[in-house]
Amino acid sequence: MPARADAITDVRGIQVGQHSDARRPTGCSVVLAQGPDDGGAVAGADVRGAAPGTRETDLLDPANLVQQVHAVLLSGGSAWGLDAAAGVMRWLEEHGRGLPVGSAPGQRVPIVPAAVLFDLHVGDARIRPGAEAGYAACQAASGAPPAQGNVGAGAGAVVGKLFGMACAMKGGIGTASVRVGEVTVGALIAVNALGDVVDPDTGAPIAGARTPDGRALRHSVRALLAGEAPQAILAGSNTTIGVIATDAPLSKARAQRLAGAGHDGLARAIRPVHTMSDGDTLFALSTGHAPAIDFNVLCAMAGEAVARACVHAVRAARGLRVDDVWLPSASDLQAP
């Protein structure tokens, strides 16, 4: 069942901040994590898309040294957006949070994994999130339910681009949470997929590629299987990225497996998913504020939270005009 606010911030030890650039639709979202000892969170990552843009994912390998991270950044701006992580690090350093690296007080290095999505086709590509945007997102962080739709990393997100931008629709960022007993799992997902977003229960498309007249959804997979040819697609020009968080205690190996289970949710809500033109990446965080729970239950919770967050992202999105191209939202298409 959904947790209190049906948001990732229902997870104890999690705060979210977002920054949207007023000059064009782009931005970044940061998830701050604190464990019961005021340290960071145990973390893992799973990259399934063929064109990822990431930072510090190797560090999250269970065989590697560092055990905790202090924040995760999701950003627009393609590879340029990774610059925003420097601002997140600066904010964390100013607040005394990071990996101790020396005997002197304050000698800490904040650990900030990050992933980016491609939104450079939406407005002036020279405008993208940098360190200032990451810092501003941290300043805005709180335990309140984060805004959804056209904000943060979802500001410039677009879905359903298999048959060209003229037939695509507005994506966005969404959140959801699931609670079983004393344990909560939440997800924050920025949906910028090449494919369609579908209802996980029925498979019916909610937002994605439209028919040539723009009035109805095309059912991308059905169209491909019927022989319709997709347009030439720039590699990496899409990508769904996100964070799964739980207050159950996990090892690094289990956190990595939880991130992998979250991709079950992407596969339920996005079709096609994990394509050669997507860099789909999920992080998992464990804050350890709750008791342990059966890991198979936790994985089921993660898949459910991710799938519902994807749906929330497109349902909360608002239509956007880019030059002479109109990118309607799911609600626009349903309107009379």
Rank of each mutant, 00 (worst) to 15 (best):
M1R: 13
P2I: 05
P2E: 05
R4T: 14
A7G: 07
G13S: 01
I14G: 04
Q18R: 06
H19S: 10
H19W: 15
R23I: 04
R24V: 12
R24Q: 10
G27E: 12
V30Y: 01
V31W: 00
V31F: 01
L32K: 01
Q34C: 11
P36H: 09
D37L: 06
G39Q: 08
G39N: 09
V42L: 08
V42Q: 05
A43E: 00
T54V: 14
E56D: 15
T57F: 01
T57Q: 06
P62T: 11
A63Y: 08
A63S: 15
V69M: 00
V69H: 00
H70W: 03
S75P: 07
G76I: 00
G76T: 01
W80N: 15
W80T: 10
A84K: 12
A84H: 10
V88N: 06
M89K: 05
W91C: 08
E94A: 12
H95P: 06
P100Y: 13
V101S: 04
A104W: 11
P105F: 03
P105E: 13
G106N: 09
V109I: 15
A114L: 08
L117E: 11
D119Y: 00
D119Q: 10
L120H: 09
H121L: 08
D124T: 04
D124M: 03
A125W: 04
A125H: 06
R128L: 06
G130P: 01
A131G: 13
Y135F: 15
Y135P: 02
C138Q: 04
Q139W: 00
A141Y: 05
A141H: 06
G143A: 12
P146W: 01
Q148P: 10
N150Q: 10
N150H: 10
A153C: 14
G154F: 02
A155V: 09
L162D: 12
G164S: 12
M165N: 10
A168I: 10
A168H: 09
T175F: 04
T175H: 05
V180H: 14
V180Y: 04
V183L: 03
G186K: 10
I189K: 01
V191Y: 00
G195R: 03
V197F: 04
D201Q: 14
G203F: 10
P205G: 01
A207P: 08
G208H: 00
R210A: 08
D213H: 09
A216V: 01
L217S: 07
R218G: 03
S220L: 07
S220G: 07
L225N: 07
E228D: 15
E228Q: 14
Q231T: 12
L234H: 04
L234D: 07
S237T: 02
I244Y: 08
T246G: 12
D247Y: 06
A248E: 12
A248V: 07
G260M: 13
A261H: 11
A269V: 09
I270Q: 13
P272C: 02
V273T: 14
T275I: 04
S277M: 14
L282F: 15
L282C: 14
L282R: 09
A284K: 07
A290D: 10
A290M: 06
V297W: 04
C299H: 01
M301K: 02
A302H: 13
E304N: 12
V306C: 07
R308N: 13
C310N: 09
V314D: 06
D323F: 01
D324M: 02
D324G: 03
L333Y: 09
L333F: 12
A335Y: 08
P336N: 13
